[in-house]
């Protein structure tokens, strides 16, 4: 992965062309000026601008090599980013199931309706519970016979086999899954209760799986980020190697380390930024491609779910990640290799 781009594009110290164009107009009547502090600051800023634009121009004069590097970085960024998007969508999808998370408390037959309602009131005092409803044996039977289609069979039964139920609504949805489990065990101990259970344990399991997915994605992102760092570092190392002569001359006429470093740092930043843009388009394509399939699937479930991409904040984060990794990679290469080049 590291040595993908042997063809090098060169960064460069600013050429004075733009400078000479700018100055030629004011040439006449030029007054001898010492370079004052404000002047130097201005020159420093304009030098940064110049280096930034010229290192980009240099990349664009070797489009093939640059595009290769951008693709490598882009793919490495797009992979973890697409997993993040997938997780994000899954989270959005399951977010709607929170209201389905309920605790069913089945009561002993001996517990009267008023005692059952009192139990509900008592449990409502707990902060984890936001609401409760009491379903009597008769209501349960009526509901069961209409929903199950066994109405006539049930009518034959000598007595009602269904227990009365207290349905508890958790205050925080599934976000507080662990606290709820404790609560369920607590309720189970109550004398009136025959059985207490969470209705949506599979949703909980899904949450756990997503937690695992998040970790895998993070690990992958870290690994691929390291890859981007090394790719940029190696590309910059080759750039340094190919500009050895120029570096020597610049150092000979008084170029500071920062000055020599600057074009390479900017080149790394451009690599990272370009890689981020490639990744962004890859993700855009991926989401567009999956959207149709997802819409069809979602239609079968009669859901309002819509696949969504990175969004503005996510896009900014992706580009920032690219830029920072490019910066880091070039810094790595520069600090390792530039010092060794001295005029002979």
């Amino acid at each position: 992965m590291v040595n993908l781009c042997p063809v090098m594009s060169n960064p460069g110290w600013p050429l004075a062309k733009t400078v000479s164009q700018r100055t030629s107009r004011r040439e006449s009547g030029a007054v001898q000026r010492k370079s004052r502090v404000s002047d130097r600051l201005g020159a420093w800023r304009s030098h940064h601008r110049l280096v930034a634009s010229q290192s980009l121009q240099r990349l664009l004069t070797h489009p093939l090599a640059s595009i290769l590097t951008w693709m490598v970085i882009g793919i490495a960024l797009a992979l973890p980013a697409s997993l993040f998007i997938a997780l994000d969508n899954l989270q959005q999808l399951t977010g709607g199931w929170d209201s389905a998370a309920r605790i069913s408390v089945y009561l002993h037959d001996s517990v009267s309706e008023s005692a059952g309602r009192r139990l509900g009131e008592k449990l409502l005092e707990k902060p984890e519970i936001s609401d409760f409803s009491y379903i009597s044996k008769a209501e349960a039977l009526a509901e069961f016979s209409t929903l199950s289609g066994f109405g006539s069979v049930i009518d034959e039964l000598p007595d009602n086999p269904l227990p009365a139920v207290v349905l508890l609504q958790p205050a925080l949805g599934l976000g507080s899954a662990e606290a709820l489990e404790v609560l369920v065990r607590e309720v189970q101990q109550l004398p009136e209760v025959e059985l207490a259970q969470m209705d949506v344990q599979w949703v909980q399991r899904l949450y756990r799986l997503m937690e695992l997915g998040k970790r895998v994605t993070l690990a992958l992102a870290a690994l691929l980020g390291l890859g981007v760092l090394l790719v940029t570092g190696n590309t910059i190392r080759l750039a340094i190697e190919s500009r050895r002569e120029e570096i020597e001359v610049v150092k000979l006429v008084g170029g500071t380390d920062a000055y020599v470093r600057r074009p390479f740092i900017y080149t790394g930043v451009w690599y990272g930024f370009g890689g981020g843009i490639v990744a962004w388009f890859l993700l855009l394509g991926l989401v567009a491609w999956l959207d149709g399939a997802v819409a069809g699937l979602v239609g079968l479930y009669d859901s309002q779910f819509e696949l969504h991409g990175l969004g503005v904040a996510g896009s900014a984060l992706l580009l920032l990640a690219g830029v920072l990794l490019g910066l880091g990679g070039s810094w790595l290469a520069v600090s390792r290799h530039l010092g060794a080049i001295q005029p002979q």
């Binding site: 110290w13 004075a16 062309k17 000026r33 030098h47 120029e246 001359v249 008084g254």
Partner: peptide, 30 residues
């Protein structure tokens, strides 16, 4: 020790750009 990838002007301007001269002084001095 000249750099052949740039003009004569740019070669001569190099020490001035490095020393942080203001652009308005560079052309005149070069």
């Amino acid at each position: 020790q000249l750099l052949f990838d740039r003009t004569v002007f740019d070669n001569v301007a190099l020490p001035l750009l490095i020393a942080g001269y203001h652009p308005r002084d560079v052309g005149r001095r070069v």
